[in-house]
Design a protein around this nucleic acid. Sequence first.
DNA 1: TTACGTGCAAATAATTTGCAGTCCC
DNA 2: GGGACTGCAAATTATTTGCACGTAA
Lengths: 149, 149
Amino acid sequence: MILSPPAREVMSTDCPWRDVNEMLRLAGLRPTRQRVALSRLLLGKGARHLTAEMLFEEATQARIPVSLATVYNTLNQLTEAGLLRRVCVDGNKTYFDTRVSAHHHFYLENSYELVDIPDLDLKLEEHPRAPDGYEIARIDLIVRLRKIR
Amino acid sequence: MILSPPAREVMSTDCPWRDVNEMLRLAGLRPTRQRVALSRLLLGKGARHLTAEMLFEEATQARIPVSLATVYNTLNQLTEAGLLRRVCVDGNKTYFDTRVSAHHHFYLENSYELVDIPDLDLKLEEHPRAPDGYEIARIDLIVRLRKIR
DNA sequence: TTACGTGCAAATAATTTGCAGTCCC
DNA sequence: GGGACTGCAAATTATTTGCACGTAA
């Protein structure tokens, strides 16, 4: 089930209980303890880029009892529902981005961090038209950065 | 060891024996049976996008006795040497691109195929400047395509 | 000769899945 | 109460590595 953008906008601004519950319900997911807790961690503080392992770690620190498998499942379900976006950087780790609107990324090769590129900095390319018979599903632009010296 | 662009240009245009041998030697790799054979498959016919598994399959069909591990090792060594470029599309498969100069890709989501975007079709974006202290290592642009209907 | 390569099988790493028990509606 | 969800452990997939043997210089 795909959530329409406006619905998402409202829900993710901050993170009071009812909103997360409702968000999950709208996404067709039962608001269980684990899902609610993970959603709050994810969406409670602006744009974030997390791996499953990172979120699991955070949950553990926050004394939220949840298994790694459930973290994976939840991330996949929220992605499915359009509440998260999968970002692939280097093949051996999958990042999940809490900002789902169109935007691009810097990848810091030294620290393995993913950072949003401010829209202002990017007068977007006239992107190529899709070949006949195809439509553009999405455009991923990743600028890989390396520390100088 | 990194090969300078001009050297590469010359070597990869076609694929006579001596050139591949020399190419490998210049890259600091001993031109063994397997490496020579794999290099010819890779570089013998224009731009290609292959996974290790695909190359292994091709080698097997061509009666080239080589192990999957050696295919992986060779791909990594050639990438290291700047003769191939790693492209990450969806996290669970690594593609190797035989074209190492700057260019971008279409990814066909239905067939899991990677295709070069003709340079003509892409008036390149004024790409964002790197933040202070960083330099741009590389820019990856992937336009994901989906078949219409 | 001798260091570098190769093949195989075993090791890793990230992620998924099967299933028995648990919890929301 | 019943189906959806969770946790655990086992399975999968892509890739890497250790080591005995082979081969190019």
